[in-house]
């Protein structure tokens, strides 16, 4: 089976989410990586080095520069004449593009794949991860998005694939990129951070988030997350949100501070290796999933912890 993998990139380098998608695709067959972008030779060269990639296709065109689904989906659908499966990481980019490709191919996509059971059978979470469905696809070609936390990352070195230029129809004229506001942070990105310190509504204000959560995160070199309640209350921006409606994370260590542990939050972090919870309510559901729990006042505990570490 030959598999086309969507490479998530910033034109210069390859983003981590791609690496798990390469691993998942490798379980199906021969992996060919597609870099669609503008001035994306750097990303293509990086993709060629990923272990397990046998060939890189580079579609370099201004129309593909911002990954607009309207322009890249027809490119992928045309390329798919030569492939049996299309695999994309379940990032906001992958989730935007893959279903558009699936519909063009008349294929029912399998979203957020957790495991590849066989060439046509996959597991995926439903009901915010409260149930795991095993599904079998009867479509001739498969279209999958891959949950990054469920697969190991392929090595970024070791491959030496050839880069081949491909072209598509370019701009469909349906959409254009206006601008973006991507938060710049010195801290690691949530989806690739080894340690995450997350705060909940108990923080009570954005200022407390800055003065309580961030110093601990900085001490540990951790990423900073938040519960939906903290985001809804306006303490932090939405891209901090961990949970069913935010980011799905699985770091080595997840430290939940003042987070009760609503189902929707647990859905986003329960696959973390070690979970540590600090909460004043000893009956908080977060303690049912935590490896280590400490009941008490976060406003005393967290500064003390930061100081003593």
């Amino acid at each position: 089976m030959s598999v086309l993998v969507w490479v998530e990139h910033d034109n210069a380098s390859v983003k981590d989410a791609t690496l798990a998608a390469v691993t998942a695709a490798g379980k199906l067959g021969d992996v060919v990586a597609l870099v669609a972008g503008h001035g994306a030779q750097g990303a293509a060269d990086a993709a060629a080095k990923i272990a397990g990639v046998s060939k890189v296709l580079l579609a370099d065109d201004a129309a593909y520069g911002h990954g607009l689904a309207e322009n890249v989906a027809p490119l992928i659908a045309d390329l798919m004449a030569g492939y049996d499966a299309f695999v994309a990481p379940a990032t906001t980019t992958g989730k935007n593009i893959a279903p558009r490709v699936a519909a063009l191919l008349d294929v029912m996509q399998v979203s957020e794949v957790l495991s590849v059971e066989s060439a046509d059978t996959f597991t995926r979470p439903i009901y915010a991860g409260n149930a795991i469905a095993t599904v079998k696809s009867s479509d001739a070609k498969k279209v999958l998005t891959i949950r990054g936390t469920a697969f190991d990352k392929a090595a970024t070195e070791g491959g030496s694939a050839a880069v081949e230029a491909v072209s598509g129809k370019g701009d469909t004229g349906l959409s254009s990129f206006v601008g973006s506001e991507i938060a710049k942070s010195e801290r690691p990105e949530l989806t690739s951070a080894k340690i995450i310190v997350s705060g909940g509504r108990a923080l009570a204000s954005g200022e407390n988030f800055t003065s309580i959560i961030e110093p601990l995160a900085d001490k540990l070199g951790a990423g900073v997350g938040a519960s939906r309640a903290a985001v809804d209350a306006g303490y932090v921006p939405n891209d901090y949100q961990v949970g069913q409606t935010g980011k799905i994370v699985a770091p080595e260590v997840y430290i939940a501070i003042g987070i009760s542990g609503a189902i929707q939050h647990l859905a986003g972090m329960k696959d973390s290796k070690v979970i540590i919870a600090i909460n004043k309510d000893e009956d908080a559901p977060i303690f049912q999933v935590a490896d280590v729990g400490l009941v008490g006042d976060l406003f005393k505990i967290v500064p003390e912890l930061t100081e003593k570490l």
Binding site: V107, A131, A133, T134, V135, K136, S137, S138
Partner: peptide, 15 residues
């Protein structure tokens, strides 16, 4: 196009 083979509870974490 997809058939459900089975639906299971996710693996539980121990407190």
């Amino acid at each position: 196009r997809l058939s459900i083979v089975k639906v299971e509870e996710p693996a539980k974490r121990q407190a």
